[in-house]
Design a protein around this nucleic acid. Sequence first.
DNA 1: ACTATTATTGGCGTGATGACCAAGTATGTC
DNA 2: GACATACTTGGTCATCACGCCAATAATAGT
Lengths: 118, 118
Amino acid sequence: MTELDRQRLARRAAILKSLAHPSRLLIIEMLEKSPRCVGELTEAIGADITTVSKHLSVMKRAGLVRDEKHGTYSEYSLVCNCVSHLVDCIEEGMDARSGKSATCTAKPRRQTTGKVAQ
Amino acid sequence: MTELDRQRLARRAAILKSLAHPSRLLIIEMLEKSPRCVGELTEAIGADITTVSKHLSVMKRAGLVRDEKHGTYSEYSLVCNCVSHLVDCIEEGMDARSGKSATCTAKPRRQTTGKVAQ
DNA sequence: ACTATTATTGGCGTGATGACCAAGTATGTC
DNA sequence: GACATACTTGGTCATCACGCCAATAATAGT
């Protein structure tokens, strides 16, 4: 484990952490369809607007979304559509795990022999 | 937002949460190469073995890994390779965001017009 | 300037998370 | 049975995350 490895893992973990919340996932799904202002997202989530604003700031810091001011509105949008694809991967993984189907459309990175530890 | 939506989002969030930790990501990467026992993972991570054991139990509860007993050893392995592919998606997303390249090999789910709110 | 609208920031209580130590369980070896 | 090995579980403590309220921008409209 080099220092670089540590940093890479920490960075990945930070991104995942910024996604790992139901409200934030809903935000992602909504932004995937079109950019939204805070009020719209708040209405869909059904929480206090200050809470939603903070969720957005977390996601912005993580680099998942960006904002653009239009008058008094803040329009938020996804930085990269990869995010939604990522969430799809999770769904696929869930399906595969629950045994509904063993087929996983997401390609595995590499395949190794399952060597047994000692 | 139906109750079903809420459950789906909560489930996805739980999976992401179980991934959102540097040590757990390292575990995923190691298990991707081959199954491992707790001691091996502990050595690589450099934390207390009880800590690693608890990380593993979290990931097991989330359905990411499974364990199989061999004598006094517990051999952990990935349930689905989708997990590592998911982590790749993140990396791709990070690269795209950092501007290193605008190309994102992960296919977007759908493309919509970026309608501006109000 | 005054008011309304939209969003952000600070603060606080509460609950979850993560780290280690200590103790317990399970298995293999002598 | 006694001991060693490999792991898990319970306890404690510090830190972090999340929710709402209150207060503060920032802008638009009159």
